[in-house]
Design a protein around this nucleic acid. Sequence first.
DNA 1: CGACGCATGTGCGCGAGTTCACAAAGCGCT
DNA 2: AGCGCTTTGTGAACTCGCGCACATGCGTCG
Lengths: 234, 234
Amino acid sequence: MPPPPARRRIPDATVARLPIYLQILAEQSTAAIDNISSEGLAGLAGVNAAKVRKDLSYLGSYGTRGVGYDVGYLIYQIRRELGLNYDWPVIIVGAGNLGQALAGYGGFIDRGFPVGGIVDVDPAKFDVVVAGARVRPLDELSQIVESKDISIGVVAVPSSAAQDAADLLVKAGVTSILNFAPVILSVPVGITVRKVDLAVELQILSYHEQRRSVAQQNGQLQGAPADRGRGATA
Amino acid sequence: MPPPPARRRIPDATVARLPIYLQILAEQSTAAIDNISSEGLAGLAGVNAAKVRKDLSYLGSYGTRGVGYDVGYLIYQIRRELGLNYDWPVIIVGAGNLGQALAGYGGFIDRGFPVGGIVDVDPAKFDVVVAGARVRPLDELSQIVESKDISIGVVAVPSSAAQDAADLLVKAGVTSILNFAPVILSVPVGITVRKVDLAVELQILSYHEQRRSVAQQNGQLQGAPADRGRGATA
DNA sequence: CGACGCATGTGCGCGAGTTCACAAAGCGCT
DNA sequence: AGCGCTTTGTGAACTCGCGCACATGCGTCG
């Protein structure tokens, strides 16, 4: 086990892409492919090959010139960098539609994020079993977080209750929050928040649709789409 | 109704923020606040005031110097720009855990994205009613898309079936896809794809957690987090 | 009616991230 | 053992978005 290389700061943009690479590498691994070039990986990830190389270079020099990257070793290194060598149990606040779907969604536990608990205010939901976890009263949040040493919380409550939920999570000792409510959470410095807003995603698509339709009306005089960034993977 | 201003191309980064502003403005509107400054809006959105002004300036000059922006009028303009003046029905492919949760999630229809249909391959799911929509066989996808003139599709199937689902959607005439499967979809040019990968979000949080824990071990010799961009809203 | 104050709209410099292009470096074949 | 092919790792140019700072213009108050 080589020592972690001098810990450079990894750009946010790169951190956001590492999971994608990891995903692809895992697929390659199950397909018994044990070596991949930056170009190959770039093709599958839908990005530029130079970007892949630069991204990977932040982890250290784990490629072999003239050959490519060893899939297994690269998986190990990315997992180590992302802190995926051990599980991060998560606690879900809100056992409504979304909360239950998230708890039941297999994709979490598979990737190292077991549901350590799910809580709700509504007594009618207590003890409902979702994917092996029983819904517990909100009061027990703090105790669950502490006993299972949970650092990641998921906010899946209505907008109006989101800030309260976040406050409770922070008070309980959670330091990262994944927020599904369409509000901006205000948290102390040092707490990491990421937001997933489904309606926002749809509205962005709507923008492109709207653009398409006016372009069509005008006899597409507008410049070609080009559509850089996240968008059409041609 | 003023004519749409000479249609400049709006940067992707701005388009991604407009829905956030819209959300906040709607809240202000229901709170009977009919005027807001760029600074006020920026505070609520967690961004810089100059950025807000620049973003809004892409829509035209809809503010009043010395006063601020008229909330109602701004809502109207953003909605127009995003193409939210009329509903965009969506079709959901996959009636599993996630698909059903999405269909049942009120946040969609509220914001102008009614569920125009939900389809699955599994006969056991046919005719299950989710939030007013009956699950239909996959075969009927094309017909549903056509009859309801749907342009947005949601992929909520397992990874292995995601590309097939996308192909079907494109063939049926859908031009925008929201993909929840952790795979890169390959689609023809001109089709817009956005991906929401819950595991990726958690892995990014994991990175920050891991970073925190090694920093703590080293007696936090590392530089302060600072945590720009998406992240802690201090 | 004029002057003052306040918030918008925007030109400009800066920094982060992306991409190009090439030198360094393994591997295999002769 | 050496040569050439392939692919990495990275310096350097470039692009894009961000944020400062300020001039512009509107409303208000005296």
